[in-house]
C-alpha cells in the first residue's frame, strides 16, 4: 500500500517541480524588460568603456605633440612576450652634447596579452591603456603600431 502512495506522491512531486520550472521560463517570456542583449553595432555611439578598460597600449601626447617617453626600455624588458620594441636615436643638442631619444616605440598589438606590466612599470608614466577595442584588420602587419606620433618630442619640463 505504501508503494501505491509513493507512486502518486512521486508523480505529484515531479509534476509540481516541472510546473515550477515552467513558471520561471514563462515569467521571463512575458517580461521583456529583463532582456540583457547589447545591440552592439547600433549602440556604438553611446557606448562608453570603463576608464581602466585595457583596449590597447597608447602613449599619452599633449596638445603640443609631446610625450613623456625617454626611451629607457623598461617596458621592453618587462613585456613577457616581446610586444614592445624601442628604437632610439642620438641627436645633437645645441650645446654640442649628444642625447639618446626615442625614435620609434613599436607596439605589436597582435602579440599583446594586456597584462599591464609595461604601463605599470613605466617610470615616467608615458604609457597608458586606450579604450578602443575594435582592432579587427585584414592584414596583421597593420597591428604593428608606432606609439609615438610622427614629429613628437619629449616633454622637457621634468627636472631630474
Amino acid at each position: 500500500m505504501s508503494s501505491f502512495f509513493k507512486y502518486f506522491s512521486d508523480l505529484f512531486k515531479g509534476v509540481k517541480s516541472l510546473l515550477k520550472g515552467m513558471a520561471v521560463t514563462n515569467r521571463y517570456f512575458f517580461s521583456p524588460g529583463e532582456i540583457v542583449t547589447e545591440q552592439y553595432p547600433e549602440n556604438r555611439n553611446k557606448m562608453k568603456m570603463y576608464d581602466r578598460f585595457k583596449g590597447e597600449v597608447i602613449m599619452i601626447h599633449n596638445e603640443h605633440n609631446q610625450h613623456h617617453c625617454t626611451g629607457c626600455g623598461i617596458c621592453e624588458t618587462s613585456c613577457p612576450n616581446g610586444s614592445i620594441e624601442i628604437i632610439s636615436k642620438r641627436i645633437d643638442l645645441p650645446d654640442g652634447k649628444k642625447e639618446r631619444v626615442i625614435d620609434k616605440h613599436i607596439y605589436h598589438l597582435g602579440m599583446c596579452t594586456f597584462c599591464g606590466l609595461c604601463v605599470k612599470n613605466c617610470p615616467s608614466h608615458a604609457l597608458a591603456f586606450g579604450q578602443r577595442f575594435e582592432h579587427a584588420v585584414y592584414d596583421r602587419t597593420k597591428l604593428n603600431k608606432i606609439l609615438n606620433h610622427p614629429g613628437s618630442s619629449i616633454i622637457k619640463d621634468i627636472e631630474e
Binding site: F29, E34, I35, V36
Partner: peptide, 10 residues
C-alpha cells in the same frame, strides 16, 4: 523568438 524571450534575448 520564443526561446529568445525566454532566455532574456531578443
Amino acid at each position: 523568438k520564443v526561446c529568445g524571450f525566454i532566455q532574456n534575448r531578443v
